[in-house]
Design a protein around this nucleic acid. Structure first.
Lengths: 115, 115
DNA sequence: CATCAGTATGTCTTTTTAAACACACTGAAA
DNA sequence: TTTCAGTGTGTTTAAAAAGACATACTGATG
């Protein structure tokens, strides 16, 4: 007999550091958009997020990572911009790997929940 | 050589149903406090949460579970109260089991993160 | 040396969320 | 049939988060 309702497990993954939450899916999306657009301004627009907030997230990431994830370029022809560092690229990759492993496990291990 | 900063993975687990988030650690704590105190009022006080909100969470749980998790007793000597149903007891148990399996896996699978 | 687009930062406003207040309803027991 | 503590529900206030504005700074390039 089939259950009348379907329940399934959701999982949210993030990285903590001594001062609290350090890197979750939101910051990862921001990193990806910075890579794609070449600036914090355009990344923020892409995500319909205020520049101010995007800038603050980048600050936080850079200060709390062992080495900055985003390199900021000031002034110059196009006004400047921002690009990912090697550490930034690695952060995206590591985060998605960890997240996938955990989510796959969660799916495998929790079938037929009932409440 | 030891890394200068320590990063570790955190995981939040909850149960989804067609209409969205159904049961997370917050509602589980509420269930446990209802079991412990015998009423929504006292459970809410214990958690320093407004009665109104606690009541709404109970409503939501009861309506979206296949059968109610909390039985509410109206009027009577002590004004009434609330107690967990069998389904409520099972929900606590199932949730913690699922949560523990996933968190243990996450810990095992993610050592020595670097950013 | 003026231009330009993006970075950097403060302030103010709006929206959202949560908390606080108020009060009617319930029913076993004294 | 009055009491009592908890349930049930609307309204109002306050706090917190998000968003909008404004404006100075930066430096390669023409």
């Amino acid at each position: 007999m089939a259950d009348s309702k379907k329940y399934n497990v959701e999982v949210r993954v993030w990285i903590e550091e001594t001062e609290g939450a350090f890197l979750g899916i939101g910051k990862i999306w921001l990193l990806e958009n910075i890579r794609k657009t070449g600036s914090i301004t355009n990344a923020a627009k892409e995500m319909k997020m205020a520049y101010r907030q995007a800038w603050q997230l980048v600050e936080e990431m850079n200060q709390r990572a062992e080495s900055p994830l985003v390199e900021k370029l000031l002034g110059g022809k196009g006004g400047g911009g921002a690009k990912l560092t090697e550490a930034g690229e690695r952060a995206i990759q590591v985060f998605y790997e960890v997240e996938k492993r955990i989510k796959d496990f969660a799916q495998r291990e929790t079938q037929n929940l009932k409440f």
